[in-house]
Design a protein around this nucleic acid. Sequence first.
DNA 1: CTGTTAGCGCATTCAT
DNA 2: ATGAATGCGCTAACAG
Lengths: 345, 345
Amino acid sequence: MRTTIKDIAKYTGFSITTISLVLNGKAHKIPKATEEAILQAAKELNYRPNQLAVGLVKKQTKTLGLILSDIRNSFFANMAKSIEDECRRNGWNLILCNTNDLHEREMKYLQMLADKGVDGVLICMARENDSEKVEEMVALMDSLNIPFVLVDRFYPEVKGCSVIVDHDEGGYLAARHLLELGHTRIGCVGGPKDLADSNRRTQGYIRALMEKGVEFDPSLIFYGDYDLSSGVRGAEYLLKKDVTAIFAYNDMSAYGVFHYLKQQGISVPEDISLIGYDDIFFSEILSVPLTSIHQPVEEMGTEAVQQMIRIIRQKQKQDTKKNIMFQPYLVVRQSTAAPAGVMHK
Amino acid sequence: MRTTIKDIAKYTGFSITTISLVLNGKAHKIPKATEEAILQAAKELNYRPNQLAVGLVKKQTKTLGLILSDIRNSFFANMAKSIEDECRRNGWNLILCNTNDLHEREMKYLQMLADKGVDGVLICMARENDSEKVEEMVALMDSLNIPFVLVDRFYPEVKGCSVIVDHDEGGYLAARHLLELGHTRIGCVGGPKDLADSNRRTQGYIRALMEKGVEFDPSLIFYGDYDLSSGVRGAEYLLKKDVTAIFAYNDMSAYGVFHYLKQQGISVPEDISLIGYDDIFFSEILSVPLTSIHQPVEEMGTEAVQQMIRIIRQKQKQDTKKNIMFQPYLVVRQSTAAPAGVMHK
DNA sequence: CTGTTAGCGCATTCAT
DNA sequence: ATGAATGCGCTAACAG
């Protein structure tokens, strides 16, 4: 059996109270001798407080929950790593929850986490969520009285803390890069039609077009779902539209685009330029290293945990809305170039 | 505040015991009417047991720990996903711990997890561990009285449960494939020199050589560390040895090999054949899809959790040694072919 | 059939 | 300065 505080009491002859005071660094009025005897005994008996008991009385478990769709997704894995790192540095543990983008599972996990007394939850919300479902989640967390930080997704209607990337800027950077290379017919392989962070990329894209005086053609936006196959379908669709460049809203779908183009004997960037979004590790080592928009994932994870800690500390006003917005940046590699017949300025 | 069992007692007028019995499905001798009244009240008050309290008395937290080096590693991410999936199916939660391959961190996490009362720990041991450190860990887990399952690494000296892949077979399959294509000078980009699962691949490789009557040349084994750059270095080294094929002990280092070869103007598989190991997702979508040895990661994760559950159930004899060994298989893609000037049989 | 009682391991208030 | 008592929320042995 593990040694308990009681064992130390028996062993040293002091009362449980005294032991507890000493062990919690509150031994202001306790003789040095007593203190040292207790510390000594604790070490000898290899005492470690049972965190279940501590949590029960302190109402703090030093455990956070992380809810995301699928840890195999490289973006989430990076996020999880930096989140867990920051947790460790601050003495927290992390419970990992994969929802497979299922709203129902998010709700279940939320309940489980609350039952286990986690101090807070970091959430990368499921794609499936419409604003009704989001509100349902927020309502649940409120009723469960559990602090949360929204990561990577922003919902204007939710008050609370979110850590996000400025996707408008990301879309703008991607489009501007292509425009500056001389492209004017730029197709997009987007995310789901009503997904906010996908639409925000589109807005940035349009902003860049307008800045250069290029008219926006809505038919150049293909709505996909961020995965490889949607890139393939998107490329197939956009080829018929005579685009000279394709902006994929994440790297995975960019791979799909690339795959399809190659299969059609179309080369990147000679025939068509391709830019991705996320800048995940593999983009760097592809046969044609992918130009991409980099999201500062590590920093975001760290910041999310720090916000969480802040909220937990000042337990009161978690209803103040606070958005931490990170700026993406362009990483130029070899998948983008001037369109055929156009010299780079 | 959350409603407690006490609230239900007050609300219904029954005693706490009765409530507890009903809520735990032990209401064998309790009138249907009482039972339903209580169930009804529980629902109305939205009651959920505080798992901290339950854990404290039952000594079961329905939480497992997962210790691995880095979740960003695609192999571990896949493993973690299937482990967490199986946990969820069985009502368990998972605490994720990244050690960055640091033994010291493994030890710290082990302590934290024990303090939180996890029911068991799944461990992908750090590469850094020599047998002394492994024993130190096992000793700690024993003294902490915490069940464990070793995943992906096997230590003959450790009694307990492990879930592993037959890397001897994997090495054999890889080498045989290349031999059958007509290669005889096959270089290897291995893992660290004293890492068991790397050496086991080598043994399988040698076994295949012997079977075909090809002499083993130790200088054809390059010892790396499983990452991209070690693939680059390995390729550089092996090129001087006039190999016609390279067997990289994991896909990541295969990418490094590929990268270097391409840079040198050497094409795969025309000039040199390349085979990897792990068969991670990206290998399929590379410019030259990589032939690789597939490890059944999902099945392994699932099995690891099931073994864990089994051990937890029969709390007694966790000292019986048990190895679950999975068989890898060959996935032929386009990075392997007959050597120049040799026809495929 | 149901309530009383006694912990699980710890923190904390109130006496002494 | 230190100990006794109480409670966190729950389960379970034991009465009755």
